[in-house]
């Protein structure tokens, strides 16, 4: 079974976003994205999703924990 250009583009998405494609592969994906809005949307969504995940999980460290960590330091004599 041959892969359609969009299927190929889908398979390239993670490595594309991780910037580990070769120069040729990168150029090939960019060329497809510039003319295929369907894939381009999905790539933009992936970028936003990664960003959103990063923000959603950024829970600040409890201040008491910070104090506990500082208390673990070797006392200066």
């Amino acid at each position: 079974m041959t892969e359609t250009p969009c299927e190929h583009c889908e398979r390239m998405m993670q490595p594309f976003m991780d910037r580990i494609l070769s120069v040729e592969e990168q150029a090939q994906a960019e060329a497809h994205l510039s003319e295929c809005d369907w894939c381009a949307k999905r790539y933009r969504f992936e970028g936003q999703l990664r960003q959103y995940v990063r923000v959603a999980v950024s829970e600040p460290m409890p201040p008491e924990l910070k104090e506990k960590l500082a208390a673990l330091r070797t006392p200066l004599v």
């Binding site: 889908e10 999905r42 969504f45 936003q48 999703l49």
Partner: peptide
């Protein structure tokens, strides 16, 4: 299922397919 799977499912559930990706991501 491939890497477009989540978008496809969300878009399908969001409406008519003319959504932009911002509206789709807002569902999360």
């Amino acid at each position: 299922e491939g890497d477009y799977f989540l978008y496809n499912r969300l878009e399908e559930a969001t409406g008519d397919g003319s959504n932009d990706e911002e509206r789709v991501v807002e569902r999360l």
